[in-house]
Design a protein around this nucleic acid. Sequence first.
DNA 1: GACCAGGCACATC
DNA 2: GATGTGCATGGT
Length: 210
Amino acid sequence: MEIYRRLYGRFGPQGWWPADGPFEVIVGAILTQNTAWRNVERAIENLKGEGLLDPWALLKVDEEELAALIRPAGYYNVKSKRLKAFIRYFCEKYQGDLGKMFGRPLPQLREELLKVDGIGPETADSILLYAGGRPVFVVDAYTRRVLGRHQIIGEEATYQEVQELFMENLPQDVELFKEYHALFVRLGKTYCRPKPLCEGCPLEDEGALS
DNA sequence: GACCAGGCACATC
DNA sequence: GATGTGCATGGT
């Protein structure tokens, strides 16, 4: 919580996730895998322009056509498959109804999402937290890097271990989880690239705990 | 031109 | 079970 206070004090509220609605969050979560958000925005603009930010429209669209539209987001063949895989699951099981899907018990829904081809732990948790408003802490590359640099976790820490560290030591507050994760990304972009740029980092002096 | 970005699946040992 | 590799565009 001390870390959160410092990050919030430095950067303020991040207001994540930047998207029009929950469905767009899900599409963005898949498209942004290992990809700069700027490139994802272009891909989403293309989809919007074609009226494809809609589950039933995406269900019908040809996979190669979809790949061409999301090209700016990179890995476009892979991501086209992954989007289609999610959409098929979403339409078949929930009739494209977000309320229905997010109405399910959290642990079961998470397991389901993880079974969809192309949805791993971070994507699943991003969907649950930012599209579904469920209290799940999202762990990403920046989070691990920051925590690793400050010796709060080791290199070998698994996704689940890092996630539990937060979820067991923080109030189960959706807004807190959203802001905290976004703040880690914000911090990482400025001060915690693969090549350290620690000058001026708000966590410079090691005096922090969760 | 190298390096990096809000991962994940799959192959191989 | 532990590593290694492919996927690809666009910005610094």
